[in-house]
Protein backbone atom coordinates (compact mmCIF):
# COMPACT_ATOMS: atom_id res chain seq x y z
CA UNK A 1 0.00 0.00 0.00
CA UNK A 2 1.31 3.43 -0.84
CA UNK A 3 0.37 7.08 -1.17
CA UNK A 4 1.66 9.38 -3.87
CA UNK A 5 1.56 13.12 -3.53
CA UNK A 6 -1.52 13.01 -1.32
CA UNK A 7 -3.17 16.27 -0.29
CA UNK A 8 -6.13 16.49 2.00
CA UNK A 9 -8.27 19.53 2.73
CA UNK A 10 -10.83 20.32 5.41
CA UNK A 11 -12.67 23.04 3.52
CA UNK A 12 -9.82 25.31 2.47
CA UNK A 13 -7.48 24.20 5.19
CA UNK A 14 -4.80 21.82 3.94
CA UNK A 15 -4.35 19.07 6.51
CA UNK A 16 -1.95 17.03 4.38
CA UNK A 17 0.34 18.27 1.64
CA UNK A 18 2.21 16.14 -0.84
CA UNK A 19 2.56 13.01 1.24
CA UNK A 20 4.22 10.09 -0.56
CA UNK A 21 4.77 7.09 1.61
CA UNK A 22 5.02 3.31 1.13
CA UNK A 23 3.70 0.77 3.56
CA UNK A 24 5.08 -2.77 3.51
CA UNK A 25 3.57 -6.12 4.34
CA UNK A 26 4.87 -7.78 7.49
CA UNK A 27 6.11 -4.45 8.71
CA UNK A 28 4.75 -2.04 11.31
CA UNK A 29 4.85 1.55 10.15
CA UNK A 30 4.52 4.20 12.85
CA UNK A 31 3.35 7.72 12.13
CA UNK A 32 4.55 10.24 14.68
CA UNK A 33 4.47 14.00 15.10
CA UNK A 34 2.93 16.70 17.27
CA UNK A 35 -0.85 16.88 17.47
CA UNK A 36 -2.47 18.47 14.46
CA UNK A 37 0.37 17.37 12.18
CA UNK A 38 -1.90 15.29 9.96
CA UNK A 39 -0.87 11.79 11.04
CA UNK A 40 -4.40 10.76 12.01
CA UNK A 41 -5.77 12.41 8.89
CA UNK A 42 -3.43 10.32 6.77
CA UNK A 43 -4.50 7.16 8.54
CA UNK A 44 -8.14 7.97 7.93
CA UNK A 45 -7.42 8.67 4.26
CA UNK A 46 -6.16 5.11 3.87
CA UNK A 47 -9.62 3.58 4.33
CA UNK A 48 -11.52 6.67 3.20
CA UNK A 49 -12.99 7.22 6.64
CA UNK A 50 -12.51 10.91 5.96
CA UNK A 51 -15.30 10.68 3.40
CA UNK A 52 -17.63 11.17 6.36
CA UNK A 53 -16.40 14.71 6.94
CA UNK A 54 -18.41 17.32 5.05
CA UNK A 55 -16.53 19.79 2.85
CA UNK A 56 -13.37 17.70 2.78
CA UNK A 57 -11.54 16.39 -0.24
CA UNK A 58 -8.44 14.40 -1.10
CA UNK A 59 -6.10 14.90 -4.04
CA UNK A 60 -3.31 12.62 -5.19
CA UNK A 61 -3.30 8.87 -5.04
CA UNK A 62 -3.60 6.14 -2.46
CA UNK A 63 -2.76 2.78 -4.02
CA UNK A 64 -3.75 -0.58 -2.63
CA UNK A 65 -2.36 -3.40 -4.76
CA UNK A 66 -1.77 -0.89 -7.50
CA UNK A 67 -5.38 0.29 -7.52
CA UNK A 68 -6.20 3.88 -6.58
CA UNK A 69 -8.71 3.75 -3.75
CA UNK A 70 -9.89 7.28 -4.56
CA UNK A 71 -10.86 6.17 -8.06
CA UNK A 72 -14.59 6.99 -8.43
CA UNK A 73 -15.31 3.39 -9.44
CA UNK A 74 -13.93 1.99 -6.24
CA UNK A 75 -16.41 0.33 -3.91
CA UNK A 76 -15.65 2.03 -0.61
CA UNK A 77 -17.44 -0.60 1.41
CA UNK A 78 -15.46 -3.42 -0.17
CA UNK A 79 -12.32 -1.41 0.41
CA UNK A 80 -12.98 -1.01 4.09
CA UNK A 81 -13.44 -4.75 4.40
CA UNK A 82 -9.88 -5.17 3.23
CA UNK A 83 -8.54 -2.53 5.59
CA UNK A 84 -9.28 -2.96 9.28
CA UNK A 85 -9.23 -0.08 11.69
CA UNK A 86 -8.73 0.22 15.44
CA UNK A 87 -9.66 3.50 17.05
CA UNK A 88 -8.24 5.75 19.70
CA UNK A 89 -10.81 4.91 22.32
CA UNK A 90 -12.11 1.36 22.56
CA UNK A 91 -15.50 1.50 20.86
CA UNK A 92 -17.26 -1.84 21.16
CA UNK A 93 -20.90 -1.81 20.11
CA UNK A 94 -23.45 -2.11 22.90
CA UNK A 95 -23.91 -5.76 22.01
CA UNK A 96 -22.55 -9.01 23.37
CA UNK A 97 -18.88 -9.93 23.07
CA UNK A 98 -19.77 -12.55 20.50
CA UNK A 99 -21.92 -10.23 18.40
CA UNK A 100 -19.20 -7.60 18.38
CA UNK A 101 -16.71 -9.97 16.81
CA UNK A 102 -19.29 -11.53 14.53
CA UNK A 103 -20.52 -8.13 13.31
CA UNK A 104 -18.22 -7.79 10.33
CA UNK A 105 -19.02 -11.33 9.22
CA UNK A 106 -22.74 -10.85 9.56
CA UNK A 107 -22.74 -7.69 7.47
CA UNK A 108 -20.89 -9.73 4.89
CA UNK A 109 -23.85 -12.03 4.74
CA UNK A 110 -22.41 -14.89 6.77
CA UNK A 111 -24.95 -16.39 9.14
CA UNK A 112 -23.94 -20.04 9.53
CA UNK A 113 -23.70 -20.64 13.26
CA UNK A 114 -20.79 -23.05 13.45
CA UNK A 115 -18.72 -21.03 11.03
CA UNK A 116 -19.38 -17.84 12.94
CA UNK A 117 -18.48 -19.51 16.23
CA UNK A 118 -15.21 -20.79 14.81
CA UNK A 119 -14.23 -17.47 13.37
CA UNK A 120 -15.12 -15.60 16.55
CA UNK A 121 -12.98 -17.96 18.61
CA UNK A 122 -10.14 -17.75 16.13
CA UNK A 123 -10.21 -13.95 16.08
CA UNK A 124 -10.40 -13.67 19.85
CA UNK A 125 -7.44 -16.05 20.04
CA UNK A 126 -5.48 -13.91 17.61
CA UNK A 127 -6.24 -10.89 19.77
CA UNK A 128 -5.11 -12.83 22.87
CA UNK A 129 -8.49 -12.35 24.46
CA UNK A 130 -10.10 -15.79 24.17
CA UNK A 131 -8.91 -17.08 27.52
CA UNK A 132 -10.32 -14.06 29.32
CA UNK A 133 -13.73 -13.93 27.70
CA UNK A 134 -14.49 -17.47 26.54
CA UNK A 135 -17.06 -17.88 29.32
CA UNK A 136 -18.72 -14.50 28.88
CA UNK A 137 -19.32 -14.36 25.15
CA UNK A 138 -22.97 -13.57 25.75
CA UNK A 139 -22.31 -10.74 28.19
CA UNK A 140 -22.34 -7.14 27.09
CA UNK A 141 -19.02 -6.00 25.68
CA UNK A 142 -19.38 -2.80 27.66
CA UNK A 143 -18.69 -4.79 30.83
CA UNK A 144 -15.10 -5.56 29.82
CA UNK A 145 -12.14 -3.55 31.05
CA UNK A 146 -10.67 -0.86 28.82
CA UNK A 147 -7.77 -3.03 27.70
CA UNK A 148 -10.06 -5.97 27.04
CA UNK A 149 -12.40 -3.74 25.09
CA UNK A 150 -9.55 -2.55 22.89
CA UNK A 151 -8.39 -6.10 22.22
CA UNK A 152 -12.01 -6.96 21.46
CA UNK A 153 -12.00 -4.16 18.89
CA UNK A 154 -8.84 -5.64 17.40
CA UNK A 155 -10.46 -9.08 17.30
CA UNK A 156 -13.49 -7.52 15.66
CA UNK A 157 -11.27 -5.98 12.99
CA UNK A 158 -9.37 -9.24 12.45
CA UNK A 159 -12.51 -11.33 12.03
CA UNK A 160 -13.12 -9.98 8.53
CA UNK A 161 -9.56 -10.96 7.55
CA UNK A 162 -8.29 -7.59 6.44
CA UNK A 163 -5.01 -7.17 4.63
CA UNK A 164 -4.05 -3.93 6.30
CA UNK A 165 -4.61 -2.92 9.91
CA UNK A 166 -4.84 0.78 10.76
CA UNK A 167 -4.40 1.72 14.41
CA UNK A 168 -5.14 5.25 15.57
CA UNK A 169 -3.38 5.72 18.91
CA UNK A 170 -4.79 2.40 20.09
CA UNK A 171 -3.28 2.68 23.56
CA UNK A 172 -3.92 6.31 24.41
CA UNK A 173 -6.88 5.46 26.63
CA UNK A 174 -5.24 2.48 28.32
CA UNK A 175 -3.12 1.85 31.40
CA UNK A 176 0.49 0.67 31.06
CA UNK A 177 -0.22 -3.05 31.55
CA UNK A 178 -3.00 -3.05 28.96
CA UNK A 179 -0.73 -1.06 26.67
CA UNK A 180 1.96 -3.67 26.99
CA UNK A 181 -0.48 -6.40 26.02
CA UNK A 182 -1.55 -4.51 22.93
CA UNK A 183 2.05 -3.91 21.92
CA UNK A 184 2.85 -7.61 22.24
CA UNK A 185 -0.17 -8.30 20.12
CA UNK A 186 1.03 -5.91 17.43
CA UNK A 187 4.31 -7.81 17.37
CA UNK A 188 2.58 -11.12 16.79
CA UNK A 189 0.18 -9.75 14.20
CA UNK A 190 2.77 -8.21 11.96
CA UNK A 191 3.71 -11.57 10.51
CA UNK A 192 0.42 -11.63 8.62
CA UNK A 193 -0.59 -8.01 8.13
CA UNK A 194 0.50 -4.61 6.97
CA UNK A 195 0.17 -2.58 10.14
CA UNK A 196 0.10 1.20 10.29
CA UNK A 197 -0.03 2.80 13.70
CA UNK A 198 -0.44 6.44 14.71
CA UNK A 199 1.03 7.28 18.07
CA UNK A 200 2.01 10.35 20.04
CA UNK A 201 4.17 8.19 22.28
CA UNK A 202 7.68 7.99 20.85
CA UNK A 203 8.79 5.13 23.08
CA UNK A 204 5.85 3.17 21.74
CA UNK A 205 6.85 3.94 18.15
CA UNK A 206 10.39 2.83 18.92
CA UNK A 207 9.17 -0.36 20.60
CA UNK A 208 6.65 -1.61 18.08
CA UNK A 209 7.52 -0.25 14.65
CA UNK A 210 9.97 -1.14 11.91
CA UNK A 211 9.55 2.03 9.93
CA UNK A 212 8.72 5.47 11.28
CA UNK A 213 7.42 8.53 9.47
CA UNK A 214 7.66 11.93 11.12
CA UNK A 215 4.98 14.48 10.26
CA UNK A 216 4.89 18.17 10.89
CA UNK A 217 2.24 20.69 9.78
CA UNK A 218 0.69 18.32 7.28
CA UNK A 219 3.95 17.34 5.62
CA UNK A 220 5.94 14.15 5.79
CA UNK A 221 9.29 15.41 7.04
CA UNK A 222 11.31 12.22 7.19
CA UNK A 223 10.75 8.52 6.90
CA UNK A 224 13.22 5.73 7.55
CA UNK A 225 13.85 2.58 9.54
CA UNK A 226 12.73 3.15 13.08
CA UNK A 227 16.27 2.57 14.38
CA UNK A 228 17.67 5.18 12.06
CA UNK A 229 14.99 7.74 12.87
CA UNK A 230 15.53 7.40 16.57
CA UNK A 231 19.33 7.23 16.53
CA UNK A 232 20.61 9.07 13.49
CA UNK A 233 17.82 11.21 11.96
CA UNK A 234 18.93 13.08 8.89
CA UNK A 235 17.05 16.27 9.61
CA UNK A 236 17.45 18.63 12.52
CA UNK A 237 13.66 19.05 12.81
CA UNK A 238 13.17 15.34 13.36
CA UNK A 239 15.92 15.20 15.93
CA UNK A 240 14.46 18.17 17.79
CA UNK A 241 11.10 16.43 18.01
CA UNK A 242 12.47 13.06 19.01
CA UNK A 243 14.70 14.46 21.68
CA UNK A 244 11.79 16.45 23.02
CA UNK A 245 13.01 19.91 22.18
CA UNK A 246 9.58 20.82 20.75
CA UNK A 247 6.12 19.39 20.31
Amino acid sequence: MKTTDLDFYYGDFPALEGVSLDFYINRVTALIGPSGCGKSTLLRCLNRMNDLIPYSRAEGKVLLDGQDIYDPNVDVVGLRRRIGMVFQKPNPFPKTVFENVAFGLRVNGISKKTYLANRVEESLNLAALWDEVSDRLDDSALGLSGGQQQRLCIARALAVEPEVLLMDEPCSALDPIATQKIEELIHQLKSSYTIIIVTHNMQQAARVSDITGFFYLGKLIEVDDTDTIFTRPKLQQTEDYITGRFG
Partner: peptide, 20 residues
Protein backbone atom coordinates in the same frame (compact mmCIF):
# COMPACT_ATOMS: atom_id res chain seq x y z
CA UNK B 1 -17.20 5.96 16.96
CA UNK B 2 -19.93 3.32 16.59
CA UNK B 3 -20.53 4.41 13.03
CA UNK B 4 -16.83 4.52 12.24
CA UNK B 5 -16.19 1.12 13.75
CA UNK B 6 -19.00 -0.40 11.74
CA UNK B 7 -17.98 1.25 8.48
CA UNK B 8 -14.37 0.31 9.19
CA UNK B 9 -15.44 -3.32 9.27
CA UNK B 10 -16.86 -2.99 5.79
CA UNK B 11 -20.51 -2.57 6.70
CA UNK B 12 -22.47 -0.46 4.26
CA UNK B 13 -24.08 2.74 5.43
CA UNK B 14 -27.49 1.12 5.64
CA UNK B 15 -26.11 -1.91 7.52
CA UNK B 16 -24.48 0.52 9.93
CA UNK B 17 -27.72 2.42 10.49
CA UNK B 18 -29.87 -0.68 10.75
CA UNK B 19 -27.59 -2.83 12.89
CA UNK B 20 -25.71 -0.33 15.04
Amino acid sequence: TYREASLGLGATKWQTIYRV
